[in-house]
Design a binder for these strands. Structure first.
Lengths: 237, 237
DNA sequence: GATGGGCAGGTTGTATACAAGATGACTGAC
DNA sequence: GTCAGTCATCTTGTATACAACCTGCCCATC
């Protein structure tokens, strides 16, 4: 979620640009967890001064992507799998609460119609493919939480989503996972539509747990592969 | 929670000092929601340069205490009561989840004994009074969440606690509220001890809701009073 | 008197200079 | 060969200078 969203359109700042660039570097594995670098390096590479670079790095630090080592550089936070599990747990807690909140509203939120259109297509041929599914999946969960109507909860959930994106994106590289996602999302929407918050929460939990397990096994291999590529690039500059 | 906690003891930085000072100013109502000021003012007042002041302000902004107005100063975020309600809702969601997590552990967490000693005193005379109760109450809720064992959940809960502190502190100015707090905390601990997560969650929810309602009515008056004092100080410098 | 434009002052955003300290390689002694 | 100490280098933390631009006041004009 861009910080300028909703605002009168703050002109783009260098700090924002650096922030987005670094975040992209992390998400695209150009910066491997564990990589170390200095503010000066980044500043040179992105043609900026240290000041906006520092601002961007501190933002990323607060979001849990970076560590600052006192007077000895920055490090992309090593992937801590225990921490990831905890983020998943927290995510489940928030999304379960969202189910109950949505169902306790007097009228169902309008977003449900759009979500149904996406995840309950008239024909299977209308299903999205590839990286689009990843974006749709993310937006499905975010929209549901947002529909609960608690902006603070939505904000925290968004923060968690940002931090988990780096590994969730691996979930849709297998066709069977895409199929499962469609079926499970559809079931969750059905439960909400028939005002069964308990059932919706249970299905949601199972859905996230399944995805979590699938991602877990893929992640390790990807990390290793990325590290291998990285090492190669270093060896032959 | 100090950022240096757990680390090898990073020497205290100017930025940290400014951050704590500003946070105190907000919590102690020396900075009223809505107040505007510039980075230069703060830097002069706290005998620092603009750089660490900016870092502190951006931290406070991310935590929801400040707004930055593009090239026209900073503002203490006006108290948005809807936002406060949402924070309370989120807090309840997290603490309820903590109850279930605690009860699902094979062995009860050791912290329970300490909490029981505090909130289940052998004699009523051992009850704390005044501002101590506020600190104890805050730590009661934080410790319970921490006992659930999810560090991310604990971190978010701590953030919420920080943001709500400014108004929760008003809850213990009335003796009847102190009594109620003791009784309710004791009941919650009993429910946990007898492994009844559902009951614990319900009692906790009721406890927080009661406190929320009590605080709500006090807050309005305090804010008005503070604004009055503030105006007076401005009029007679 | 009301209104619009220009200007001065102030504010944040960015770049750069300097300070304090951590790191690691090198050198010398044993 | 090994280990300890020293020092150059590099890093972040902080201060300050400069740029871009927003705001509100003042004055001229209608």
């Amino acid at each position: 979620m861009s910080r300028s969203a909703g605002k009168p359109r703050r002109q783009s700042s260098v700090a924002d640009r650096v922030y987005e660039a670094l975040k992209d570097d992390i998400f695209e594995f150009r910066l491997i967890p564990g990589d170390r670098f200095s503010e000066g390096e980044i500043a040179t590479r992105l043609a900026a001064s240290r000041t906006p670079v520092r601002e961007a790095l501190y933002r990323l630090q607060r979001e849990g992507h970076m560590d600052v080592l006192f007077r000895s550089g920055w490090q992309v936070k090593p992937l801590d799998f225990e921490r990831v599990e905890e983020l998943y747990d927290l995510r489940i807690t928030l999304e379960r609460a969202a189910m109950h909140k949505i169902c306790s509203h007097p009228t169902p939120p309008p977003i449900l119609r759009q979500l149904n259109a996406i995840w309950h297509p008239d024909h299977p041929s209308e299903r999205a493919i590839g990286s689009t599914v990843r974006a749709l999946d993310e937006s499905f969960h975010c929209e549901l939480v947002a529909a609960a109507g608690n902006r603070e909860m939505t904000r925290i959930h968004q923060e968690i989503t940002d931090r988990l994106r780096i590994i969730r994106r691996l979930d849709f590289t297998r066709p069977d996972r895409v199929d499962a996602t469609y079926n499970e999302h559809a079931e969750i929407l059905d439960a909400i539509s028939s005002n069964q918050p308990g059932a919706a929460a249970e299905k949601l939990t199972a859905h996230i747990r399944t995805s979590q397990a699938a991602v877990r096994e893929i992640t390790m291999e990807k990390i290793r592969e990325a590290a291998r590529m990285h090492q190669q690039n270093k060896a032959t500059p």
